[in-house]
Design a protein around this nucleic acid. Structure first.
Length: 342
RNA sequence: CGCGGGGUGGAGCAGCCCGGUAGCUCGCGAGGCUCAUAACCUCGAGGUCACAGGUUCGAAUCCUGUCCCCGCAA
């Protein structure tokens, strides 16, 4: 359901060249993507038999004065293939739509792009658009599905390809793939894996579209939940949460905004530290949340609301990520001191 | 010219404001203690104090410039 129109369009596309041929005509694709999540999919399409006309990506802004922004991975791939790159401030202006229409695309293939396509923009492509999303929809609709899955301690996730509709991430499901989450996996690693998982899925769906053989399922809206964009403040540790919850937070918020707290040291201003790898301790303690219960022999252990959390790696403000041992060599943390918000 | 922190033996830091022969916690080497040890004790090696210039009798420390790292902000 929901693909009747598609099927007719795709049939027509196939019959344009050779009505009886088992190999339908290649589609004219415009890929939209910005982050690393979209790269494997992009490479897969470039290697496939369909025609990639252009990349649409978000405008690269300089992050620091006098320093060039790091080249976006998607842009680099496109330039490597001599593809045109469009980076409109907004994809939904008449000007941007004209530029897209000039390419006469059959299909938009979108992943980790950063802008929401209006119905008018979506209509520029003959078959509309498909989107690769980093969750098992309808769970975690929105900007940060991978992060929120980790944050909530999910043990399974996946990728979903949907037919794009005006409602964000709410379109009918065309393909889905699942994968278990490793308890130690962080958002960067999981995103890489999901990107790899999604790439062949997208190519397969594009092939099916070309052949007019797409089946889709509407999402069960009653099961939907959101995955809103991350905020800086999501990275602040509330030590009254449990040790496993804080560990999930640390895993989820890489590479941004990361998870941080402050060493509330005596006779000095609080020192902000970002947490790297942490371990949930089997022991428990009666100390109030945020209290240092061990700070020697290379081990830094903090009491949480439920359970103890060992900080294995941390990065003091202005410094690099270092082991707890290194940190303790230069910073006289004492048991009984507190970590928390200043 | 967005704001801020920092570059000191292999690691992490102090010293800098109030210039005067380099210190702490580790690591490393040798020896000792010990049934034994990542524990403890003693001794030791190892430093262009980011780089360049300036001020000074004398600069890690003050001044100027350069390079690099990081946090915030986008």
């Amino acid at each position: 359901m929901g693909n009747a129109e598609w099927g007719m369009d795709a049939d027509r596309a196939a019959s344009d060249s050779s009505p009886q041929s088992p190999v339908p005509s290649p589609l004219r694709l415009v890929v939209m993507g910005t982050g690393p999540f979209a790269v494997p999919m992009f490479r897969g399409l470039l290697a496939g038999r369909h025609r990639v006309l252009a990349l649409v990506t978000r405008l690269a802004r300089s992050s620091r004065a006098g320093v060039k922004p790091p080249p976006s991975p998607m842009r680099a791939v496109a330039e490597g293939h001599g593809l045109p790159v469009l980076d409109p401030e907004s994809i939904n202006t008449p000007v941007a739509r004209e530029a897209l229409a000039a390419l006469a695309p059959d299909l938009f293939v979108v992943a980790d792009y950063g802008q929401i396509l209006s119905p008018e923009t979506l209509a520029v492509a003959r078959l509309g658009g498909i989107n690769l999303h980093g969750s098992i929809l309808p769970k975690y609709r929105g900007a940060a599905p991978i992060n929120w899955a980790l944050y909530h301690g999910d043990t399974e996730t996946g990728v979903t390809v949907i037919h794009m509709t005006p409602r964000v991430d709410a379109g009918p499901i065309v393909a889905i793939a699942r994968t278990p989450i490793d308890p130690e996996e962080d958002a960067v690693a999981l995103e890489q894996r999901l990107a790899q998982l999604g790439a062949p899925l997208v190519s397969q769906v594009v092939d099916q579209l070309a052949a007019g053989q797409v089946e889709s399922l509407p999402q069960d809206a009653s099961q939907a939940c959101g995955a809103r964009r991350l905020r800086k403040t999501d990275g602040e540790i509330d030590w009254s949460r449990s040790a496993p919850e804080i560990k999930n937070q640390v895993r989820a918020l890489e590479p941004w905004p990361r998870t941080s707290t402050h060493w509330l040291r005596q006779h000095a201003t609080p020192l902000r530290v970002i947490l790297g790898h942490v371990t949930v301790e089997a022991r428990t303690s009666d100390s109030p949340p945020g209290t240092v219960v061990a700070a020697s022999s290379g081990r830094l252990v903090i009491a949480t609301g439920t359970g103890l959390l060992a900080i294995d790696q941390l990065q003091p403000a202005g410094k690099r990520m270092m082991s707890a041992g290194e940190f303790l060599n230069g910073h006289p943390v004492a048991t009984g001191e507190r970590f928390g918000s200043p």
